[in-house]
Design a binder for these strands. Structure first.
Lengths: 225, 225
DNA sequence: TTAAGGTTTTAGGTAAGCCTTAAAATAAAC
DNA sequence: GTTTATTTTAAGGCTTACCTAAAACCTTAA
């Protein structure tokens, strides 16, 4: 009766660090705090606790990163999360943009035995409905080599591979516009002064802000056939 | 980040009261405390909080019962619990005696939308794998009219209908002896001095203590054809 | 009717996770 | 090198849910 809620916060911190420190660099505590909806002071406290537990490394004034232990733990949570997302979409027919939040709750309440039985039931899917890779049971992650939409150049063509990191607000926005993994797109033009990217998807052109574009990953289409 | 664990304790208390007060009588706080693995002081404190919230009624020195609100809330948790059990057994092929504990964690992390989608996916099952009825979405419970094994007389025949209340220890014990819902049984004799019940199931005779017998419910076979 | 036994309250504590406000340390930018 | 912004510490608090120990209180049965 104490253990459960105990883990929950820890798991959220580890998962978030994992998301923020995707490029192997340090995740600033301020960013952590913001994503978790917590004051920077509280986040700093918690980071200390997690450092003591050997789950995080903290470089003062720079940010935090996961230790090997923390990484494995985070990957296990992410695995559970994405497997549940697959189930919720493919079997329960719940909406693509809602399952992230549902899975966020289930992920902390799922035994390893359940996780692995679920993986087998689902036939060991490789990605979640939002395109993100599902870590293997031992915590290994498939490296992805896609490009953020925000890193493409006007004129580029590509196909959406995944949305990352996910949040309900973002997914709602994207779902309403059919901006989903698998969709081909064309980067028509970039408005000046850090303006939006004009992106043609599914026959329509959308103005996407820089911030949103950084959450959309693509596989560029090669002009060379 | 606060709400989740918040609900968890409340839900466990309500669920437990519902289990203990099956016969419409009051559940003593001491029994509540024992089942929850908590001191009576803590249980008393929590009962006060739940009374203030209008979920429980407390008759001092007697025990507690659920208000209509509390009842509905408890039934909703139980519904989620039993639906998960069905899924875990029927689709993930997890062991009958283990799924109770797995479901105990999932039940507090499941949105209503997920619950109802799951119910539809499972084709609205009426009972959990341990034979207990699954409350309907609006909190209605099917009345069961079966008899505790401890209330049968030597010589009686019957069929096991359900195990209630469940606990992993009990389920492990029963699973190892094939004492499962659907099994026919014969009450051979009752040992004197509150001794065990000699019960013939699946070709073998088992000595079951009074306490265990109170957890096994049966549908007596009528001699009158 | 009184003593025994169970129940409840009171008092005093713990731990995790959060909060705020304010001051100090450091990094970055000019 | 000074200013500005960010980070970290420090101090004091809150809530939930648990604990022990001791006192007060009901109920019941001898």
């Amino acid at each position: 009766m104490k253990h459960e809620s105990f883990n929950e916060s820890i798991e959220m911190y580890l998962k978030t660090v994992s998301e923020l420190a995707a490029g192997n660099d340090l995740a600033p505590i301020s960013a952590l705090a913001e994503r978790l909806g917590v004051s920077t002071v509280s986040a700093t406290e918690m980071v200390h606790r997690l450092c003591e537990k050997g789950l995080l490394d903290h470089t003062p004034y720079k940010g935090v990163s996961l230790t090997e232990d923390g990484r494995r733990r985070a990957q296990r949570v992410i695995r559970r999360h994405r497997l549940w997302e697959c189930f919720l979409v493919d079997y329960l027919n719940l909406p693509w943009e809602k399952v992230h939040d549902y899975a966020c709750r289930l992920e902390h309440a799922t035994d390893t035995a359940v996780t692995e039985a679920l993986a087998a039931f689902l036939n060991n899917p490789q990605t979640c409905p939002h395109g993100n890779p599902i870590p293997s049971a031992d915590g290994a992650v498939t490296a992805v080599r896609d490009t953020a939409l925000s890193d493409l150049q006007p004129g580029d063509h590509g196909t959406i591979t995944r949305i990352h990191p996910e949040s309900e607000l973002l997914l709602d926005y994207l779902a309403a516009r059919h901006i989903l993994p698998g969709q081909p797109l064309e980067f028509e033009e970039l408005a000046p002064f850090n303006g939006p990217l004009m992106i043609k998807i599914d026959g329509e052109t959308h103005a996407l802000g820089q911030e949103i574009a950084a959450h959309i990953f693509t596989e560029p289409a090669h002009d060379t056939l």
